[in-house]
């Protein structure tokens, strides 16, 4: 029997409706872990709901997600566990939220980190994005609230942004489920290693600091040859981050 194709969309790899199963809270036997990070009030919980089919409460105020929500989806026979991290503006201070988010990205070693940003406030959101990209190189930027950006006449050159950041960028309006199929496809490609990211590393560092960081990085890499975020660890050591020093002593980075 011949199935009739309704539109060109259905032939696209991104479409693949049959391959997608929203698993809700069933997250056992997963193949990959996906972390959801981002500034407060950028729609992380909405993206989380769109991916898992769950109905985590969403609301228009920052700091609404108080517990770490977990959910899952299945895509092309692979199961993904999704962790919604508390929204933070940075990973460098010591508030409980920031530490929880950082520890999960650092020690939980998610297979993919989805960074949700508000397309209307890209510059401010990039602060967190650049910090995350120092820690992990398996990340995708979800450029959320594109509908609002369009209304505000904000135009974003997605390709250049993706090239500058060195990670894939997916424009989306999670409230209307737009961009979600593309996001899922991108997540799967990064998780399976089909797509390799070469993320942006912080550039405009003053010379004396850059020199100190280089010296330290070389030493760290001597000890841990397989580590991908040696530069970030060097930053943290220079800052005197006790938790990172402790983790280094215990060998938690290996």
């Amino acid at each position: 029997m011949e199935t009739k194709i309704q539109s060109a969309c259905e032939t696209c790899e991104h479409f693949n409706r049959d391959g997608l199963k929203k698993l809700g809270v069933r997250t056992d036997n997963f193949d990959f872990v996906v972390a959801l990070a981002g500034n407060p009030n950028t729609g992380k919980s909405t993206v989380f709901n769109a991916l898992t089919g769950l109905r985590q409460h969403t609301g228009n105020w920052p700091g609404k997600t108080v517990t770490r929500a977990e959910g899952g989806f299945e895509y092309n026979t692979k199961k993904y566990k999704l962790v919604d991290l508390p929204g933070t503006y940075s990973l460098m201070s010591t508030s409980e939220d920031e530490e929880a988010a950082r520890d999960f990205i650092l020690f939980g070693k998610p297979d993919v980190t989805v960074i949700v940003v508000d397309a209307n406030r890209l510059e401010r959101n990039l602060n967190l994005v650049l910090q995350i990209l120092e820690i992990t190189d398996k990340a995708v930027l979800c450029l959320n609230l594109m509908d609002e950006a369009k209304r505000n006449d904000v135009e974003i050159d997605v390709r250049t942004l993706s090239r500058d950041l060195g990670i894939p960028v997916v424009p989306a309006s999670a409230r209307f489920n737009r961009g979600i199929p593309e996001l899922i496809q991108t997540i799967s490609e990064i998780a399976s290693g089909k797509m390799v990211c070469k993320p942006h590393r912080i550039k405009s560092v003053p010379e004396n600091i850059e020199k100190a960081v280089k010296t330290l990085t070389v030493e760290i890499e001597k000890e841990f040859p397989n580590i991908s975020n040696s530069r970030w660890i060097a930053f943290r050591l220079l800052e005197g981050d006790k938790k990172i020093i402790e983790a280094l002593r215990k060998g938690e980075f290996v």
Binding site: L126, N127, N152, V154, E155, P206
Partner: peptide, 25 residues
Amino acid sequence: HDNLTESIYADAADIVKDTVRSKDS
């Protein structure tokens, strides 16, 4: 700490300059 924060903001501003165009944002 301040230097690093400034570097991050400088990078962010650089990236935005090349990628975001807002007519009347």
